[in-house]
């Protein structure tokens, strides 16, 4: 479904060129859920953004559903994007439009007529159980609800692929579960291929079939999530091993018993 071949993405910065994605190839089978994990700056979001050409890679091929996106002209690319939904960390909803109108926006851009827009948007809102919020404005919703509107907006045009850029990074853990549940349902019921970028391993463990671990613009490791059921499984790379443990390890110093002399002097004056 998604075939990324030798993609490299380079940014010009004031300090010279920055290779955000370095010769990455990735195949995502139809109907599967692909996780991409890594720390900040690993290039995972940039890689995701090449999948609908929000970021144009310097080299390589981006093949979605059999079409090489880099070979399309502006109009063809816009048409192709109607079939590739995207969900964002900060939702990116329009504040001045109602929930209904926000969802209709993707349909409007796809050239869908007014009545059909209304119907399809209502249907998409139904999938994320927000039909009752159609007339609300985003500011009146919780973070989780906003993300569900984002999902509905992406689904309304009936895409075959849904790209999720840190979809749960701006919501609390309980809301994370709910958002992931909706994404999982979307995948199961509608057969939509999902790509989820995150820095949280528990998100990957909860939802993904496969995961690609990124570091410094490269995919350094990938594995099937069923591998984690094997207690003896150990990721091949240090970053992979680090990511699958949820523990935060600190180098904790022994606690000092007395206040340091300099501080003591400051406090005595009070």
């Amino acid at each position: 479904m998604i075939d990324i071949q030798n993609v490299s993405s380079v940014f010009d910065t004031p300090d010279g060129q920055l290779t955000a994605v370095d010769d990455v190839s990735l195949h995502v089978p139809e109907g599967s859920i692909q996780g991409i994990i890594g720390f900040s700056g690993a290039g995972k979001s940039t890689l995701l953004r090449t999948m609908n050409l929000l970021e144009r890679p310097r080299s390589g091929r981006v093949i979605i559903d059999g079409t090489d996106l880099l070979g399309l002209d502006v109009h063809q690319l816009r048409t192709a994007r109607h079939g590739i939904g995207m969900v964002f960390q900060h939702f990116n909803l329009l504040n001045n439009l109602t929930v209904q109108k926000n969802v209709e926006l993707s349909l409007k851009f796809a050239g869908v007529g007014r009545t059909e827009r209304r119907r399809a948007a209502a249907e998409a809102l139904d999938i994320v159980d927000l039909a009752d919020k159609a007339g609300s404005y985003p500011a009146q919703l919780s973070g989780g609800q906003k993300q569900r509107v984002g999902i509905a907006r992406a689904l309304a045009t009936q895409p075959r692929v849904l790209l999720c850029d840190e979809p749960t990074s701006a919501v609390d853990p309980r809301t994370t579960a709910s958002v992931l549940q909706y994404l999982s349902d979307v995948n199961a019921r509608l057969g939509i291929t999902l790509v989820i970028v995150t820095h949280e391993m528990n998100v990957i463990k909860a939802i993904a079939d496969n995961v690609a671990v990124m570091e410094d613009g490269r995919v350094v490791e990938r594995f099937d999530l069923t591998a984690l059921q094997n207690p003896g499984f150990v990721p091949a790379t240090p970053i992979g091993r680090y990511l699958i443990t949820d523990d935060i390890e600190l180098d904790r110093r022994p606690r000092a018993n007395t206040v340091a002399p300099a501080d003591a002097a400051r406090y005595s004056r009070v």
Partner: peptide, 13 residues
């Protein structure tokens, strides 16, 4: 800028 990016992802002209 997020809303513009979202619009681009939706294939807006």
């Amino acid at each position: 800028g997020g809303v513009v990016e979202a619009a681009r992802s939706m294939g807006a002209s």
